[in-house]
């Protein structure tokens, strides 16, 4: 494992810590898209089915369990916690997220790594992760008041994806010289979706202004 991959994973982990910190300390999930969080539960469960069939390392196994566990916990807080659920920005979180699932599944059937159940689900999870942030980005556009923790959460998620691209470039030249179309193209799409957000996040940070995304 190289430093970029580790930095990416740690940034991903940190984004989840920031989100859970916001939820647990402020007892609020305002500005957080339940739709995106539900998609992440599906992404992690379908990708990490290989927990039962493939062992890579203790690190990988532990991280997979953490990602599944925390994503379920976040959805639990947003749907079922009696205080937190009342702060959910329901009226603004209107992206029809379930519509993303069939195209990703069809794409996984057409372009899997191998035509087996676990490989099709793995490809599906890669494609779904690429677009899972869309409901969250839409919600941020509609939010007149984006708090610091919510902005940090989305920034860290985007940074994690950007670091994975650096990791792939590094691996390509130092390890295998193998082109990995499925994760690379999906990862590039996923990172590109953050471009607009990054622009306004960095601008607000430089000018010491409150983050606002133009609709």
């Amino acid at each position: 494992m190289n430093i970029f991959r580790l930095a990416g994973d740690m940034t991903h982990l940190l984004s989840i810590v920031v989100l859970l910190l916001k939820i647990r300390t402020t007892k609020s999930c305002a500005g957080i898209s339940l739709k995106t969080q539900e998609l992440y539960v599906i992404v992690f469960i379908t990708r990490y089915l290989d927990l039962f069939t493939r062992y890579v390392s203790f690190y990988n196994t532990a991280m997979k369990l953490v990602f599944i566990g925390t994503s379920v916990a976040i959805v639990w807080y947003m749907r079922l916690h009696k205080v937190v659920k009342q702060t959910y920005s329901r009226d603004e979180d209107t992206f029809k997220h379930y519509l993303l699932i069939p195209p990703c599944f069809i794409l996984a059937l057409l372009i899997p790594l191998e035509f087996t159940v676990t490989e099709i689900l793995w490809s599906f999870s890669i494609y779904l992760e690429a677009v899972a942030i869309l409901p969250q980005l839409l919600l941020l556009q509609r939010s007149s008041n984006i708090d610091n923790l919510t902005g940090s959460y989305v920034f860290l998620l985007g940074a994690y994806r950007a670091l994975y691209i650096v990791n792939w470039v590094y691996r390509f030249f130092t390890e295998t010289h193998k082109i990995r179309w499925i994760p690379w193209i999906s990862g590039l799409v996923q990172t590109a979706l953050y471009a607009d957000f990054f622009y306004y996040y960095i601008k607000s940070w430089k000018n010491h202004e409150k983050l606002r995304l133009p609709a």
């Binding site: 991959r5 994973d9 991903h12 290989d50 493939r54 890579v56 390392s57 990988n60 991280m63 997979k64 990602f67 790594l113 191998e114 793995w122 994975y164 990791n167 390890e175 295998t176 193998k178 990995r180 499925i182 994760p183």
Partner: peptide, 10 residues
Amino acid sequence: GVQAIEHDEL
């Protein structure tokens, strides 16, 4: 092989 590199990331 294919499996090893594709699936060693998270």
